[in-house]
Each structure stands twice: as structure tokens, then as C-alpha cells.
Computed example of a mutant assay.
Amino acid sequence: MSNNIAIAIADALTLLLHNQHGLAAAIEEVALWAKSSGSPDVHESVISALETIDGNASAITDAINQIRQA
């Protein structure tokens, strides 16, 4: 893989990661609203999904770092 392609892939993944963080923040706001509106089950479900998003974000970050080091 050429260096230019690796940089482009890492840059694209970085943008997707930023989008993922933004969506997670918005989803967290909805979860807090659900909790304050008397829907603790919905809140817990959303928090569980956010934990998955966080785990995936860590894996994506690791992949970006590996690509940038290649």
C-alpha cells in the first residue's frame, strides 16, 4: 500500500471517528432526556449501546494509529 493511500485511509477513518463521537454525544443527550422523563429502561439500553460505541472507537483509534505508523 502506498503512503498516500495509507494517509487517505487514516484520514477517512479519523473523520468517521469524529462523526461517531458526535453521534454518541447526541445519543447520550437523548438517554439523559429519557432518564429524566421517567424511562430508566430506555436510558440503560442506550447507555449499553454507548459502551459498544466507545469500545469500537478505541479499536478504530488503534487501527488509525497502525495505519499512520505503516
Rank of each mutant, 00 (worst) to 15 (best):
V30E: 15
L23W: 12
W33T: 06
S36M: 13
I5R: 01
S36T: 14
E29M: 15
L16T: 12
A34I: 04
K35Q: 13
K35Y: 09
L23K: 08
L16H: 11
A10K: 00
E28C: 11
V30A: 09
A26S: 08
L16P: 14
I5H: 02
A24E: 04
L15P: 13
I27Q: 00
A24V: 03
G22W: 03
A24W: 01
L17H: 10
N19P: 03
Q20H: 06
A31G: 05
N3D: 13
N19T: 10
I5E: 04
L16I: 14
I5M: 02
K35T: 13
A8N: 11
I5D: 03
G22P: 01
E28W: 06
L32V: 10
K35F: 15
L15F: 15
T14I: 13
Q20L: 07
G38T: 04
H18Q: 12
A25N: 09
V30I: 15
L17W: 04
S37P: 07
K35P: 04
I5A: 05
L15Y: 11
G22Y: 02
T14A: 05
L13I: 02
V30W: 12
I7F: 02
A6W: 00
I7K: 05
W33C: 11
L23E: 12
H21K: 15
L23Y: 14
D11A: 09
L32K: 08
L16A: 15
G38Y: 03
I5C: 02
N19F: 05
D11G: 02
L15I: 13
T14M: 05
N19V: 14
L32R: 05
N19R: 10
A24G: 04
L17K: 07
I5S: 02
W33D: 14
A25G: 13
A10H: 00
A8D: 12
S36G: 05
N4D: 15
H18G: 06
H21T: 11
I27N: 01
T14V: 11
H18V: 08
E29G: 14
A8E: 09
L17I: 15
L17S: 11
H18L: 15
G38C: 09
I27A: 03
I7G: 04
N3W: 05
I27S: 01
G22N: 06
A8I: 04
V30P: 03
L15V: 13
N3P: 01
N3V: 06
L32G: 07
H21E: 08
N4M: 07
Q20C: 08
L15H: 13
A12M: 08
I9L: 08
T14D: 07
E28D: 14
A6Y: 01
K35R: 05
W33L: 12
N19S: 09
S37M: 05
L15T: 11
L13Q: 01
D11N: 06
T14G: 08
A24R: 00
G38V: 09
E28T: 08
G22E: 04
L17A: 13
A34P: 00
A6F: 03
S37V: 07
L13H: 00
Q20S: 15
A10Y: 00
L15G: 13
H18A: 07
S36W: 06
L32H: 13
N4Y: 03
V30C: 10
H21V: 15
L13P: 00
N3Q: 14
E29T: 11
N4S: 10
G22K: 08
L16Q: 09
V30Q: 10
W33E: 12
G38P: 06
S37T: 14
I9V: 12
S36V: 10
I27W: 01
N19E: 06
I7R: 10
A25P: 12
